[in-house]
Design a protein around this nucleic acid. Sequence first.
DNA 1: CATGAATGAGTCTTCATTCAT
DNA 2: TATGAATGAAGACTCATTCAT
Lengths: 214, 214, 214, 214
Amino acid sequence: MASATARAHAKLDGRVARAQRLREERRAQVLDAARRLFAEKGYHATSVHDIIAAADIARGTFYLYFESKRAIFGELLEGFFTTVSTTVRRIDTSAGASPPIVQMHEGVARIFEILEAERPMARILIREAVGLDEDFDKKLADFYGRVAGLIERALRTGIAMGLVRECDPHLVSWCVLGSIKEVCDRVFVIGHERVDLPRLGRELVDFNMRGIFR
Amino acid sequence: MASATARAHAKLDGRVARAQRLREERRAQVLDAARRLFAEKGYHATSVHDIIAAADIARGTFYLYFESKRAIFGELLEGFFTTVSTTVRRIDTSAGASPPIVQMHEGVARIFEILEAERPMARILIREAVGLDEDFDKKLADFYGRVAGLIERALRTGIAMGLVRECDPHLVSWCVLGSIKEVCDRVFVIGHERVDLPRLGRELVDFNMRGIFR
Amino acid sequence: MASATARAHAKLDGRVARAQRLREERRAQVLDAARRLFAEKGYHATSVHDIIAAADIARGTFYLYFESKRAIFGELLEGFFTTVSTTVRRIDTSAGASPPIVQMHEGVARIFEILEAERPMARILIREAVGLDEDFDKKLADFYGRVAGLIERALRTGIAMGLVRECDPHLVSWCVLGSIKEVCDRVFVIGHERVDLPRLGRELVDFNMRGIFR
Amino acid sequence: MASATARAHAKLDGRVARAQRLREERRAQVLDAARRLFAEKGYHATSVHDIIAAADIARGTFYLYFESKRAIFGELLEGFFTTVSTTVRRIDTSAGASPPIVQMHEGVARIFEILEAERPMARILIREAVGLDEDFDKKLADFYGRVAGLIERALRTGIAMGLVRECDPHLVSWCVLGSIKEVCDRVFVIGHERVDLPRLGRELVDFNMRGIFR
DNA sequence: CATGAATGAGTCTTCATTCAT
DNA sequence: TATGAATGAAGACTCATTCAT
């Protein structure tokens, strides 16, 4: 049997929950506006004024949700790092796993998918976060460092397994990463040309596997 | 026999020439300071104040030589584009030319050389000019577009000559370009690790030739 | 015999009384927090946020009890004026009263006691309320004016009774007041040095009585 | 015989000197405006906007001459400290000096003179600088500490010479200082009443010499 | 009564550019 | 040509107060 107090609590909980939800929505609304603007005009050219105008909130409200302009940018960046990081998985060499080359194709497809879905963030990641600030640069470097590390490890395994030719895995990981980055930049950031993504994926993997020689 | 007027002219010419020379020197002096500062602190973090302080000129003088902060940056960029462009030559397929692969090694070596010599500009090119403003982005895109075009043309020739495997030269040119850019970024911009350049060149060319497969 | 209505009224009265009591407690709780904060950090450096955080109430609640930040400060000030005013009594010259000098010593002791007990308010009175705004300045001036008035009147009486030397009671009342204020400031506001209060009281009264001359 | 270079130098020097003079004038103009405003409305209620409006200069110009709002206030304060400090001299007890009581009268007269001449600064010193900021408070405390120190030393000398009665010179120096401060506050800051300054000086010194007793 | 999200006027400060000398 | 004082638009951020729930 629910006491009056219990009922009151339930009601309160309901309110709190709803308030929480509204809060989340507001945050999302501001984040969306900021994401779009940063992607469009860049970090420096986007003012807090622009963001609040786009999000249709008051000046003070912005600072209710985010500590600073830098902070909201950081949050966008961090969030995207996480998204992409979960996508870029280690190559699975265990018994029942698909063959490495299949995994590569899948990985590339997944990355394309994310970037396609979040073009503004892709632009921010590739164009805006670079050279903004030591801290952002470091985060970016860390991110790409982790990715390069994954590639390097895969190369070492490949060499050990006799699949990959003898080479300096450290240096070659840069080459692999570079080819992927450039392709993504062209398609998702510059985006002038309509590209057949599956085909691009095949060409990219082929290039990395076999180079250009006949 | 030189008339008085002619002598006066000559004298004037001399003066003008000297003034011109001084002017050039001044410009160079300011450009140098700006290059260093932009590379060190980035475009936005570098103020006109910083530049004139480093170049040891007055505020107004700066605007006597350059239209704006943006303009001096643009000039630096443009200059470097030219330098690099002359370096990245078309592969020579004429009769007496060295074999393409040798030319590639030479090309890579030349690029490394320039970037090594002008690290600040390399940093500006890769880190600072990106995402600054539509116009710079376009210039940058043009530059890389030209380079990618050269690569693509080489690939087509290679395919026609039976040296290069069947592939989409357009897409693959991006891959090639990307691997080069990333490697340069790592070495000349990030520059944390001491790298054996000739070796890196070999790995880079090998990667592009043969990929990672055994 | 109490009717149902009467009982209902009684019950209501009880509720109202309790609510009233709660309200008073809330007010006191907020006033306490504010007093502490104003004394510690000053009027301007203390934000409404600080106060509600310290009092553990919501933003809106604050404005349920006080009209504004200025108002709560005013209330604190006013309250302290009242407290101190009741302490600073007129010298009693009636037949059975203690001799004036004894009354002075007692008066000084009482003031010291209050300020010792409410150092934060002393600080506010002396440090914070000064120069905040015309209105506060006026209140402060009024307060000190009243005190100076009391002193002046005592001096006049003293002169009439032949106890006090011929002088301008108006101007001398300032001198007396000043010596007291400064001493209080040093001890209760600055408070760096541990001071023997009874001794200080004696020195203060002696100074006012006899000056510095031998 | 003046060479062309020498004449050029002279001309340059003239220009530089004039520019310097203009600069000083500008500074003074801004300082004046700020002094007036700070005295009138207080530190916090005076915005940089107010100052530049009163000084009739542009926003940026203000920051050309002063680092910040705080800095210009500090400069005003510091300047006044210096002025007053030079005025408050040590009592001269050497052979040919005027008798101490004459020196006291002179000292008081000098202080009155300065404060009369710079009422706005007096107001700032007494009303505004208090409780603004730890740093200002410290400077103010230092200033009054020095003054109290001078008084204390004079008292000790006086006692040693048999001119001053036995007392605690430390505590009594506060009393003396307090009486002077209050009198100055009343006259130069509150300033409601027209006061006969010489007479006030006499009463003040008399009070400090002999107290109120007959 | 209590809450706390929302508000927006107002703050200080920076900096690219101009222009009289 | 060189100077550097002057400009003012624009920036990020704060905080006392209101009001719908």
